[in-house]
Design a protein around this nucleic acid. Structure first.
Lengths: 342, 342
DNA sequence: CCACTTTAGGAAACCGGTGTCATAAAGTGG
DNA sequence: CCACTTTATGACACCGGTTTCCTAAAGTGG
């Protein structure tokens, strides 16, 4: 009796082989586009594949090839929009491939984070890993990947790793442009809200700020620098500190939008009007920047493009691997910055 | 010569069997916690497993069991925070299992969306699918799952499917509570910003609004109803329409936060102060609600808990399958609602 | 026409697990 | 002590692909 007596399970390579009267291996060659096939054979097999709706079993393929088709995304990013945009970019790149995207949010503050990730990697044996900031700045994580033998690409705001493992943005210069913009509008007393210590992105943005200020010959006394942790509440606090300075700044640059929104609230509580009494510039161009009042000037970095580049780097390690991928950010001008009358 | 001469590939079940002097099958029984093992044997094997750091290969297991350990998440949700919270909830449930979460954002407006999803499902052969609103309201998608034989659970705001395929929120009643709150504060001229046509959630929220108004014996003339599409810009437009009404509403309920933020901007442009001149209530309690000025009263639905329930339902179809999972939302009171002096 | 290379395709083993069934060992009752 | 059940373990095929190696057929040169 024929094997095809029964249940409507998915057709396998054996079914295709039997029906088209060739061996499994030949079918395998057809799916893998092997060049040493006679045209007639190829067409015959392809016809059968189309007819019975055969789709290769990825699990079996993964087993035989000793690698699977799963790309992992590790993040601990507080900014949902950014994570989702990144996911979208990756998906666009792997859309017509067999790859799938596996997500893994982690908690940087958990003591067993690294152990959890290790277990995850050992269990899933991913094809490769994409790592978003800020966790991408963890060298322990990169070391773990190397130890386990899992390919990875990190997203970062400065040279964190070898070029084949890195897609980077130029935060430092971008902040410079933002400050240039403020100076052009006549501001000279400019406050800074930093990101948390130990974050490369925060350090880069801070450095960009000071470099630009120096370039313009402007001072930045301690009372015009407040530390934040990238969260809204820390922005409120930082805003209160800066606006309570003996000589108030006429503009504030915040290392991300969330904190800028916090600073905006602080200003409101002190009955200061943005942008009339205070200009404000954020960073990241997240949804909140456009949706608060007034719509906020900020710096946008091309996260979707960076995600595509990162996924591409992972999947095609051969091409374009040796030079770093560097992406340029741009100032998005909205209504939170006004000309400062001298 | 021994097989263990060579490269540092991951140890397999064969290695464990050889070293501990039992058959593969026995090792398999140990990993699967089979009850019919002698205590001594189990311990012996477990010791070897720990020593050489053996981790079962999920791809091989998937092949043998004819099912894998991938849970898919399909969404086309415009709200990033919500999607991410959902991902987080699912992850929490599957944390200590072998399951992984595969994400798949889709575009509801693309003509080949269904074909794309079909290809995705056929190729990946997922264990099951979690579907977020609004795409969860698509019956074609559910039909596709059934046709392909992929388990699924839909998140929805009303009875969309059989209980074993559904985790639902009570949007209708929650909106009622929000309106009650406004009425208690003395409002009677209340405007509505709806969600897009064809969305169950939008219809439920709208119905909840009208039911509550009727319950309180309040009118809702056409000029106090504006249609939105859940996006910020549509909220601006809707706000303009409502605030331009012959007799202005003293409060507006918006079917989501994003549009409420838009309405807030519309109010600002007309020099109206929230909450002094206008009270505003949103829905979803997304990040923006807390971060705009004034912080916005809204309705929070327990998305993380719902995500956990959905994942649980998928993984353990036996338990708790027959009764629907229904979750209650709550009004989160902030500063965008003020007492209306008669 | 024969030896020799090239080309297309197949047989069998393998990837690392699980299922089925057989069997040895241990426990039971008469 | 023997037949009879129960319990613990193993041998072997199988899941659905790929790889290695081999062979038959076809093409080449002398």
């Amino acid at each position: 009796m024929d094997k095809a007596d029964g249940h409507d399970r998915q057709p396998t390579i054996n079914d295709v082989a039997r029906i088209s009267g060739v061996s499994k291996k030949t079918v395998s060659r057809v799916i893998n586009r092997s060049p040493l096939l006679k045209q007639g054979t190829r067409e015959k097999v392809e016809k059968v594949i189309a007819e019975i709706g055969y789709v290769p079993n990825l699990q079996a393929r993964a087993l035989a090839l000793r690698r699977n088709f799963l790309i992992g995304l590790i993040h601990d990013n507080p900014n949902a929009q950014m994570v989702l945009n990144f996911q979208e970019g990756v998906l666009e790149t792997i859309k017509d491939t067999e790859f799938a995207l596996v997500v893994r949010p982690v908690d940087r503050h958990s003591p067993n984070m690294l152990a959890d990730i290790r277990k995850f990697l050992e269990q899933q044996r991913l094809f490769g890993l994409l790592i978003l900031p800020p966790i991408s700045e963890s060298d322990e994580l990169a070391d773990l990947c190397r130890e386990i033998g899992c390919e990875y690409v990190r997203m970062g705001s400065a040279s964190l790793d070898a070029p084949e493992h890195l897609v980077e943005s130029n935060d430092r210069e971008a902040v410079g442009q933002a400050i240039d913009h403020l100076v052009e509008e006549g501001h000279s007393r400019i406050g800074l809200i930093t990101g948390p210590d130990g974050f490369r992105s925060a350090a880069e943005r801070k450095a960009g700020f000071f470099e630009a200020m120096q370039r313009h010959g402007l001072e930045c006394p301690d009372e015009l620098v407040a530390n934040g942790d990238y969260r809204f509440e820390s922005g409120v606090l930082a805003g209160q500190k800066l606006l309570g300075a003996s000589k108030r700044p006429t503009a504030i640059f915040s290392s991300n939008d969330e904190m800028a929104a916090g600073a905006l609230q602080a200003a409101r509580r002190m009955n200061l009007i943005v942008p009339d009494d205070l200009s404000l510039v954020g960073f990241d161009d997240t949804a909140i920047a456009a949706h608060i009042w007034p719509p906020m000037t900020t710096v946008r970095w091309p996260i979707v493009a960076m995600a595509k580049a990162a996924a591409h780097k992972l999947i095609h390690p051969a091409e374009a691997s040796k030079q770093p991928s560097r992406f340029l950010s741009e100032v998005v001008s909205r209504s939170s910055v006004a000309k400062q009358r001298p």
